[in-house]
Design a protein around this nucleic acid. Structure first.
Length: 496
DNA sequence: ATTCCAGTTACACAC
DNA sequence: GTGTGTCCACTGGAAT
């Protein structure tokens, strides 16, 4: 269908929007002139739009009586004394929660209560209880304790044990794992948010199957595949940001906190124990990317504005470090599992770089290695072993770096022209170094073999009704791959 | 060298 | 099944 030219009305409307933006920018500039240089402001946040909240609002629940699923029926110990305390602690909030139909607005500052942000009818109690219960059990049965005093340090030996157990698992299952066993069952499809999914992440927990999706409109959707209430779908939505959510991070050793970052310049931390989305960082610049090191749950690494990388430290509550590593936005940040001091960034300046965090010169940062693409690079991810790096670019290639110093490069052609409405593809690694997954424009998932340097297989299914563009692998369930679309759906492949 | 603009893309929803 | 609105990405070429 031939695209229409804008008519007069639309053109005027866009013109108005642009003028408003400019006006906002100039107003903002005056008020911030002492703090910021004008050059650092690429684009101002627009005022919080009256969000188009789903008018339908879960009509499937005819009876408004909320049926709760008890902990017992889920085989979970009733260990939630702290929960009741928390509930009592915030009685002032409960009147709000009695009027859920009104659309939640995003407070500019400070924490946002989960009940205030909750978009669906019914209750999110089951989700909260589930996350609390999995958060309390660490993978190794080690109680990580409460979130105070920085006592909860991951003991190195525990980390080591964990790493070994993961590696062992991968090696064992890796042999028997077959791509061809991966299937998409119709019950493993859900609409998790209303609009385009920008980012998708599994809870890194071996005995749960929960994915978290961040949408373009600022919603965070949780999908618990193990929900046991027949009349519910296991999906819980919150409106926590006023712009596209560009990153989600859940640390392996702190499962009760879900960090989200957003184009609106805010970073929030969902604290299930306090039942809030806390505001932990705000900036006037866009935040495009977000990551945590496996060996440090106190720090957040994020890409802000045109090429800056910031490190936020929970202990001080602010950013001690800011480097300008790129000439344009940083689209991804990743750390080597082999050595978390080794970091990879990808950028719209058409490069991806590998850095050694121990030796970055703040004035003249020099990467260990630069990968030059012809167009913007959207991702640069280390393989599970840390021996390879895969980059994805708008120049229609996926490149794989290998060798002791990543000196060898091979490239695989792949159509990455996602256009305006689909989030750009980002090739991710499977559960070992042998497979790379990436979406394709024909509603499938291409599987690239780095060894064969080509696409060897495409996952397809009649249940896919849109292009899967963002993915995550379950870190413990080999064969479980989640794909997200521009329409808010998540597809969950399972394998063996 | 910088800014502007048209054109591109897929999807949900209303009809 | 068709038409319309989306609009925070990017490109290449035209205009400044």
């Amino acid at each position: 269908m031939a695209p229409k030219k804008l008519n007069e009305y639309e053109r005027k409307r866009l013109e108005n929007i642009r003028r408003n933006d400019e006006m906002m920018a100039s107003l903002k500039l005056q008020s911030m002139a002492t703090r910021l240089s004008a050059a650092s402001i690429k684009r101002q946040r627009s005022a919080p739009k009256p969000k188009r909240i789903s008018p339908k609002k879960k009509p499937k629940n005819d009876n408004l009586v909320v049926v709760r699923r008890s902990l017992r029926t889920r085989g979970i110990l009733p260990d939630s004394e702290g929960l009741d305390n928390d509930l009592v602690e915030s009685p002032a909030k409960s009147p709000n929660s009695q009027t859920p139909p009104s659309k939640p607005s995003i407070p500019k500052m400070g924490p946002l209560s989960m009940s205030q942000a909750f978009l669906d009818e019914g209750s999110d109690r089951a989700l909260i209880e589930t996350i609390l219960s999995i958060g309390k059990k660490s993978e190794l049965g080690v109680d990580l304790g409460a979130e105070t005093d920085g006592v909860r340090v991951c003991k190195e030996e525990n980390l080591g044990v964990l790493r070994n157990s993961i590696k062992k698992e991968e090696n064992e299952v890796g042999g028997s794992f077959s791509l061809y066993s991966m299937t998409l069952n119709p019950e493993n499809v859900a609409r998790v948010v209303q609009d385009r999914i920008m980012t998708l992440r599994f809870f890194p927990c071996s005995n749960s199957r929960i994915v978290v999706a961040g949408s373009k409109g600022g919603d965070v959707g949780f999908w618990n595949l193990d929900h046991q209430m027949e009349e519910e779908d296991g999906v819980y939505r919150y409106h926590t940001h006023s712009g596209p959510i560009s990153g989600i991070s859940i640390h392996r050793h702190c499962l009760s906190k879900v960090f989200t970052c957003c184009y609106d310049g805010y970073i929030r931390s969902m604290d299930v124990e306090k039942e809030i989305f806390d505001l932990i960082y705000s900036s006037d610049n866009t935040i495009y990317s977000f990551s945590q090191r496996s060996d440090d749950m106190k720090c957040l690494y994020f890409g802000e504005g045109r090429g800056d990388l910031n490190i936020w430290d929970e202990r001080t509550g602010n950013c001690a470090t800011q480097w300008t590593l790129h000439e344009d936005r940083i689209n991804s940040i990743d750390f080597s599992s082999e050595n978390p001091n080794i970091m990879a960034t990808s950028s719209s300046d058409s490069t991806a770089c590998i850095w050694d965090l121990r030796s970055i010169d703040a004035d003249k940062p020099k990467p260990l290695k630069t990968v030059s693409h012809k167009r913007a690079v959207y991702s640069a991810y280390f393989s599970p072993s840390g021996k390879f790096l895969a980059t994805t670019s708008f120049d229609d290639t996926v490149r794989v770096l290998s060798g002791d110093n990543f000196e060898e490069t091979s490239w695989i052609p792949h159509n990455n022209q996602t256009g305006r409405w689909i989030s750009p593809f980002k090739a991710i690694w499977g559960w070992d170094d042998s497979h790379i997954f990436i979406g394709n424009m024909k509603r499938g998932v291409d599987v690239i073999s780095p060894a064969q340097r080509k696409t060897i297989f495409t996952l397809q299914s009649p249940h896919i009704s849109a292009i899967p563009c963002r993915f995550d692998t379950h870190p413990y369930n080999v064969g479980m791959l989640a794909g997200a679309t521009g329409g808010g759906q998540v597809y969950m492949w399972t394998g063996s």
